[in-house]
């Protein structure tokens, strides 16, 4: 996986340099954005609702025992906004969208459609990679914002309805508002932009290097998803560390 990182960086750089073609590719970009939103919006919100809920459920009783339950809003708020929503939604999108990017481009490669584009002087980076890249770079942070909101809400639901926690909506959100800063949400969004780039580059690159027949496509899809997730988790650590420096 790591020996391809150079190639992936080249692909990323070429895609960035092709930004001028965004306007001429706008229809495909919109298609991609719609596809990503359509496929994942509901899933992302439901996933995140339960994420917020389970954190409240795990930590609520512990805090109540120690008389600290009023801090629950801030705890759930921070962990969802800074860490859980960006990472989990990115993993979800790597599975849903990364796989379909690798499969689509991979089958175009295998069935010589990419070659056909080249002979028509149509740059596959402009035609195939750019729209997918822009689509995911725009949509993933958007999904993360919605996921953060529904995660907070999920935590509040559990806090209010679980007898062992019994923290009112108002109590929960008051503390959340005190503790969570706009910068915390922004740092989560920064991460999600980086993760979106990882998913886009890894999946498109895997698609473009697909060889062989249907089995090759399957292999590419698996690799795209696994490599994206691994890179996301590794990058997450270093980004968190980096963002801590800016927090000071």
């Amino acid at each position: 996986m790591f020996h391809n990182i150079g190639e992936m960086l080249v692909l990323f750089w070429r895609t960035i340099r092709a930004w001028r073609n965004c306007w001429s590719q706008r229809r495909k970009i919109l298609d991609q954005m719609f596809e990503i939103g359509n496929a994942s919006l509901l899933m992302a919100c439901v996933l995140s609702l339960f994420l917020g809920g389970v954190i409240a459920l795990q930590s609520g009783p512990v805090l109540r025992d120690r008389g600290l339950v009023s801090l629950l809003g801030g705890l759930v708020g921070l962990s969802v906004a800074k860490e859980l929503a960006p990472v989990m939604i990115s993993v979800l999108i790597a599975g849903r969208i990364g796989s379909s990017m690798a499969a689509e481009i991979g089958s175009m490669k295998v069935y010589q459609e990419v070659d056909a584009l080249r002979t028509m002087n149509i740059n596959p980076t402009h035609y195939l990679v750019l729209p997918r890249m822009v689509g995911i770079l725009v949509m993933l942070p958007l999904l993360v914002v919605l996921a953060v909101l529904s995660g907070w809400f999920g935590g509040a639901l559990v806090a209010a309805n679980n007898a062992e926690i019994a923290l009112s909506f108002d109590g929960y959100f008051n503390n959340l508002r005190q503790v969570v800063d706009v910068n915390d949400v922004l740092s989560g969004l920064c991460k999600s932009v980086a993760f979106a780039a990882v998913i886009g580059v890894v999946s498109c690159h895997q698609g473009l290097i697909t060889q062989g027949g249907p089995r090759g496509i399957g292999r590419s899809v698996t690799k795209a998803v696994v490599n994206s997730i691994v890179l996301i988790l590794i990058l997450d650590y270093f980004l968190t560390r980096l963002l801590m420096i800016f927090d000071r």
């Binding site: 089958s107 175009m108 069935y111 010589q112 459609e113 070659d115 056909a116 584009l117």
Partner: peptide, 8 residues
């Protein structure tokens, strides 16, 4: 192309 290679 031998296979046509139309974009599906």
């Amino acid at each position: 192309f031998q296979s046509g290679a139309l974009l599906n």
